[in-house]
Structure formats: structure tokens, C-alpha cells
Design a protein around this nucleic acid. Sequence first.
DNA 1: ACCTGAACACCGTTCAAGT
DNA 2: ACCTGAACACCGTTCAAGT
Lengths: 223, 223
Amino acid sequence: MALERTAIVVAALDLLDQTGLEGLTMRKLAEALNVQAPSLYWHFPGKPALLDAMANALLEDVARTPVDGAEHQVVLRRSAAELRRALQARRDGAKVYAGTFVMGENVLRLAETIIGALMRSGMSARTSMRAGFTLLYYVLGFVIEEQAWQRQVGADPANLAAQLAQWGGRFPAIEAALSHFSDADQDDRFNHGVDLILNGLGQHGPSERERMEALFRALKSGR
Amino acid sequence: MALERTAIVVAALDLLDQTGLEGLTMRKLAEALNVQAPSLYWHFPGKPALLDAMANALLEDVARTPVDGAEHQVVLRRSAAELRRALQARRDGAKVYAGTFVMGENVLRLAETIIGALMRSGMSARTSMRAGFTLLYYVLGFVIEEQAWQRQVGADPANLAAQLAQWGGRFPAIEAALSHFSDADQDDRFNHGVDLILNGLGQHGPSERERMEALFRALKSGR
DNA sequence: ACCTGAACACCGTTCAAGT
DNA sequence: ACCTGAACACCGTTCAAGT
């Protein structure tokens, strides 16, 4: 029953928040569902399959807003922010997602939204895909490090400067930069990276030939 | 003894190649070292500490080439390629790295190389850090997905088109783009993303004010 | 300083059996 | 169709004891 599968995934995500990825076990999950551990194996072939379903479920609310005729920059910025938010919403969310490779509905919808917006702006399918994935990789990497930072430094902030000081001036650029690495700054940092990628896109944008092809396609489809 | 610690990490990385991250256990590692499992706890406080050491060891050969006066684009391109290669060198390398947050020597040297090159080009410490991390996040995200792809699709290539076909035309942009997603193309895809980020940097580059400040600093230090 | 034996409190998964 | 009991082959980690 589809309802039961969904309920298991929901319970698994709640358990994830409580225990972290390390503490997420089939036995504890079964207990949370008032069931014996082997029952889960009727619904999922194994733990990896459950983690795949969890990864896809993380993106449930991503890329739901209609794009309409929005500029590709707007679509990409919003998509990036939504993906970050979705991965951040659960403890170890980025690590769960990073451990899987799912062609699930939510993942595909997100990719379709981004790549589609780029293609509609006149870029070729090839360039759109590459640019879109560049953005997605950036977001994934960002949140992975963001959550690792929260786990490690969030638990013991004083330790950070001490660890760096241990190398005694061997890394001056980092020391100069680290003062700009504050917790309050995370959103700005994230947006700056997104802007950097969008900015790179501007130059690389549709070539003369790609513009002509896009125009031709539009005319042919009668719009 | 530092020698023993290093030997453990080397053995752990070799075991990782054989078993993957899932199969990497303290007991198997101890066996590979002809020792009982509890012995490892004299050298490392626990498995997470071992994984931290492994993550840092992955970057052993990264950012070793002297930068000299190289342009920042050259430094960044090389650093990105070296990081990708290092994470790719071991099975599940990116996942091991993504699970940790280590202020280790190798990680710091890589960050110093990138951020230092950007600062020397005239960018502020703040902008250099943000741009540098954008590149690093991209590389990390790229290799995570690259290795996930190798695990999943590499094992069963025929399955891919079938999985996508299942959604029957709901994701046309992806279908159009997927033909450009070949195994042979991975290096090109990677470089394209790096170029995109470098390209975005060009516009964002040193402002007039930042150029003046850099010039002033250079003059003051007598160069 | 470095390692072992024995034990504790867990794991994921299988499978026959129940309803 | 869905769940349980019992078991198998493992885990990470602790700790007293050895050398």
C-alpha cells in the first residue's frame, strides 16, 4: 500500500532529526512505527532503498511554483534557495541526499525546472544541462559543508580559532578570510556563490547561432 | 607513534577501495593489519576520528605545486582538477570527504592556495573566500554525483533510459539534455563548470577600489 | 607504550511461520 | 497481503589484563 510506504518514510525522516544518520537504524524505525524490524523488509528491499526514498522525499516541496515566463535567473535563484532549504530542513539532510542517486519524481522536477528555464532562454540542451548541474553541484557542496560546520563548529565554537592557530601563520589567506566566515553570514555567502554562477552564465550565454535556432523553434511551433 | 598512525590510515584507504565505505569496519581493518580490533582504539579515539584522518589523507598530493606568479585562473583550474582527481582516486572518496569537517594540513593548504591566488589578483579577502569556496563546493558536489553515477549507472547502464521513460515525457528538457550526458564526456562537463565559475569571477573581479588597495599594499611591502 | 580476550549492547537481513 | 519470532553473522566500543 502506497500509504504505508509514505508513512515509513515520514517516520524515518523524523527519526533522522532525532538521531542523525549514524543513529538511524531499521530497528529504531520499526519501534517508532510500533512494528517489528523485519516488517520493514516487506515494504523496502533493504536500508539503501529506504534511504533512496528518504532522499527523494527531502525534495517534496522543491520546484513546485509555476515558472510561467520568469527569467532564467529568477528561476535558478529560487531553485537553488529551495534546494538548500530542503536539504537543511533535516539533520544530515545533505549527507542523506549525497549518498544516493535517485531518478525520483522530485529530483527530476527540480532538474527539469532549471534546465528547462535555461533552454527557454536560448541556450542549447548541452549547455543548459551543464550550467544547470553546475548550480546543483554548488548547492549540494555548500549544504554538505554547512551542515558539517554546524555539527562540528556549532558544537564547540571556541575550538575553531585554536585549531587554526596551531598552524601558526602558515595559512595567512585563510586567517584573513576567516573573519568573514560568520554564522550570520551564511545566507549572503550562499547567494554570492549563486550570483557568481549566474554571472558566469551571462557571458557564456546564448551564442548568435543559438539565438537564431531558438527563434526558429519558436516560429515553427507557432508562438 | 606517528608512523603507526599513518600505516593505519593507508591500510584503511586500501580497505576502502576493496569494500566501499559501507564495508569498511574496524574489525576488517584490524585484520588487514594483523592486529585485534581494540588495538585501533589506542591510536584513534573512535571510527569518526579515523574517517577524519582518511579524509585529510585523501588530499595528500593536492596543491603541492608551487604557485609562483601564476594567474589566479591557472591556479584555480589546477586546484579544481587536483581535488577532483584526489576524491576520485578512492572508492567512495567524495562520500568519505563529505562526511567530515577537518581543519587538517592538506585541506588548509588547498584552501590557502585558492584563496591566496584570488587575493593576490586584487580581490578582497571576503570576496576571495566566497569565490574560492564556491569553486570547492562545486568540485565536491560534482564528484559526489560522479561517484554515485558510477556506483549506480555504471553497474546497470541499460536501466537508465528505462527509468526516465517511465515518466513518459513529463521531463522533456532532461530527455533532451541526457543525450549529452555520456561517460566519455565527464572531463568536459567538469571543465565547463569550472570555466563557468571562473567566467563569473571575471565580471565580479577586483573593483577599482580593490585594485588601488592591492597596488598600495604591494608598494608598501616594497615589491 | 602498545596490544589482547572477553564481553556489552547493539546492527541489517533472512526465513519459516503466523494471521 | 502483511507481520512476527527466532536466529545468523556481523558491528563499534569498553575495560581489565597482559607484555
